[in-house]
Amino acid sequence: MPDTAHGYLYGNRILYLSIAAGLIFLIFIVQLVRQRKLSERFALVWMVIPILLILFSSNRALLERLAQLAGIAYAPALMIPIIFGLFTLVSLYFSVKASKSEQQIKKLAQELALLRHAVQQSPPVVRDRESE
């Protein structure tokens, strides 16, 4: 596919921008972990996005090949579905985590309510001894 010099420059510019954006994002995530605002487990998931972004952006040959496979003439346009897909996966991952947390919170709340009831119902002797 004949690429004009102008088109190539233009195409590469977006790739450089992508690499820069990926690096900034990566630094931002590392900062959040260092400040203990983001746990390592979640940070790892978030890092997948900038790392893949940098990988695809810095390897034009790989991108061209994948674009060809996908039937996309303008290779950098392939970044759009890739990024969209990655964000979708990450969001889904967090929804799964949230569902699990929801179940855990429910279980804890129920246990707590039942235990509090059991403590209140326990014979006063036990309670007095505990408060001493």
Binding site: I105, K106, A109, Q110, L112, A113, L114, R116, H117
Partner: peptide
């Protein structure tokens, strides 16, 4: 029993079942 957070009807009834 008093739940420490609002669980909704499902979670509340299940507490009773537990």
């Amino acid at each position: 029993v008093s739940l420490p957070v609002n669980l909704g009807i499902g979670g509340a009834v299940q507490t009773g079942f537990l």
